Simulated assay, not measured.
Amino acid sequence: MSVTGGLDGATTNVTSRTAPTGAEVLTVAVIGDYGWTGWIPSPDKFCFDVLPRLQAAGITVPNEVVNDCDPGDKQYITNATALQMDTSAYVGQICAMKNCSAFLSVGDNFYDSGVDFTTSGLLRFQAAWVDMYTQGVFKYAPWYQCLGNHDIVPGQPGVDFQTKVAPMYDDRWYFNTSLYYNPYTKACHNDTQTQIDFLSNTFAASNATWKFLQMHHPYRSAATNETDLGPLIEIVIQHQGIVMNGHDHCMGHFFSNNTNFILSGAAGYPQAGDCNNGTAPGPYALYLGANNLTGE
């Protein structure tokens, strides 16, 4: 999907290190939950026979290996890969028409178990992102990234790859803050005040016409509301911002506390159930795009 907003300033050519300020209109594409291409699931023999015995014996199995045994994702990998390709082509066509200045990712950039600094990780990054988003407007427009739950499966090595290595590999790939440079997972949850302070100070200091919070998990959704995000959402409400997220594999527009919540999470594998099959579950669901046959 694309989002258009008004900003002050002159039109400029942008890179991943330069904010895409426009004239009176700025159009960006929001795309999430997309990186299926190149993922090879764990073999069925391992998942159904060996893994249970390892776990019963108390042998530690890496998170990424367990994740690559997910039966639902193994079932949908073929369709998800094809739909990622179709959706990327469609987004490219729409952005060529609308003159998109940038792309905004809302996480889960690499299914099923993220990528890390290995040869296989480099090959996945090349196949699922560099080669996937290469034509037309994709060639010069920067991407502003965030991490999803699948991206952090490898732990700190996965976070480091996406935030430190990938930006050197392709200049369009960009993380704007250093919040993810901390030892991850537990430390992240133990230091949420750092993120709260960062968002509060940044929003307060900004003179932008439109202010967006870009994140992966939803605070308002047709599936599961992540209420632990409340402190961040309070800041967005205070500054009349807009929330953009993924995670749910569908498209939606929610409105609560005078705030818009935009969901764009079906760029690879749409699941109608994540948007309650198109039926509004409460008063804050304004639009639900629930189609199992196409991406968004």
Rank of each mutant, 00 (worst) to 15 (best):
S206P: 07
P183V: 05
G114R: 01
W143A: 04
N176C: 07
A141Q: 11
T78Q: 14
M85A: 15
M215Q: 14
T18N: 08
G38D: 02
Q193L: 06
Y184A: 12
P71R: 05
Y140C: 10
A222E: 01
H216F: 01
V50M: 03
A280E: 09
A29V: 08
D8F: 09
C250T: 08
E226A: 06
G289N: 13
A10K: 15
P218I: 06
T192Q: 06
M97I: 08
L286T: 10
V91T: 03
I40D: 10
L51V: 02
C100K: 08
N109H: 06
C69A: 05
A187D: 06
H189M: 13
T185D: 11
G252R: 00
E296H: 15
Y34D: 15
A205G: 06
K98A: 11
D228C: 04
V243N: 09
F103C: 12
M168L: 15
G35W: 03
V28A: 12
C188P: 04
Y284M: 11
D160W: 04
T37A: 14
A23F: 15
N190D: 10
N79T: 13
F161I: 00
R17N: 13
V66D: 07
G282H: 13
A19K: 09
T87R: 12
G72A: 11
E234T: 15
G158Y: 04
T15N: 01
F117I: 01
A57S: 12
F175K: 04
R220A: 11
S113V: 02
V165N: 01
G92K: 06
G252Y: 00
F125R: 00
M251F: 13
V14T: 12
R17V: 13
S16A: 13
D151P: 05
N79R: 14
K74W: 09
L199Y: 05
C188Y: 10
K186Q: 11
G158I: 04
D151W: 00
L51C: 02
L54T: 07
P41M: 05
G289L: 08
V130W: 01
Q162D: 02
S206D: 04
